[in-house]
C-alpha cells in the first residue's frame, strides 16, 4: 500500500509564482494574521477596497476551516514576479472532506457553523480550487488579480 498522499498543490499548480510568506495556523489569532497580511499586500499593490474585503473574507473562511475542522494547518502567500496576481494556499492534514459538493452547499455544516464559509469563499475568490482526500487532509488554492 502506498503511503497516504496529501492532497497538496505543488510548483506545477503555482506556475511562475514565488513564495512571499508562510504561516502556521493554530488559533483564531493566526487566521486574523494571515487575512491581514493578504489585505496589506493587496492594498500596497493598488487593489480596490472591495477586492481587498472580498478576498480577505475568503481567506478568513478557509483559514478558520483549517483551524476548526482539521486542528490547524499551514498557509502560504505567493505572488507572480510582476505582482499582477496573488495566490494563497491553505493546507492541513486533517480528516479531509468526504463530499466536496455537499460541503460547498450553503447551509451544510458538520459542526455548529452556518455552513456558508466554503461556498462563500468560492464565490468571493473566483479562482478557487480544492483538493481533499479522506484521511489525507485538505488544500485550498485561491487567487486574485491585483
Amino acid at each position: 500500500m502506498p503511503s497516504p498522499s496529501y492532497a497538496a498543490f505543488d510548483e506545477k499548480d503555482l506556475g511562475a509564482q514565488v513564495l512571499l510568506s508562510q504561516y502556521k495556523l493554530r488559533t483564531s489569532g493566526d487566521a486574523v494574521t494571515v487575512r491581514q497580511a493578504v489585505a496589506r499586500y493587496m492594498k500596497e499593490h493598488g487593489a480596490t477596497a472591495l477586492s481587498v474585503t472580498r478576498f480577505a473574507t475568503a481567506v478568513s473562511e478557509i483559514a478558520r476551516n483549517a483551524i476548526v475542522h482539521a486542528g490547524g494547518g499551514e498557509f502560504s502567500i505567493y505572488v507572480d514576479p510582476r505582482a499582477k496576481q496573488l495566490t494563497v494556499v491553505c493546507w492541513d492534514k486533517g480528516p479531509g472532506i468526504e463530499d466536496v459538493e455537499l460541503a460547498l452547499t450553503d447551509g451544510y455544516t458538520s459542526g455548529g457553523g452556518l455552513g456558508r464559509g466554503l461556498g462563500g469563499a468560492k464565490r468571493l475568490a473566483k479562482i478557487f480550487e480544492i483538493r481533499t482526500a479522506i484521511g489525507g487532509g485538505t488544500s485550498v488554492l485561491m487567487s486574485v488579480n491585483l
Binding site: T57, D106, G120, R123, L124
Partner: peptide
C-alpha cells in the same frame, strides 16, 4: 458597517 463589508456579507449569504 463599511459598504464593502455589506456587499461581501450579502455574497456570503449572511
Amino acid at each position: 458597517m463599511r459598504p464593502t463589508v455589506a456587499v461581501t456579507l450579502v455574497e456570503l449569504g449572511m
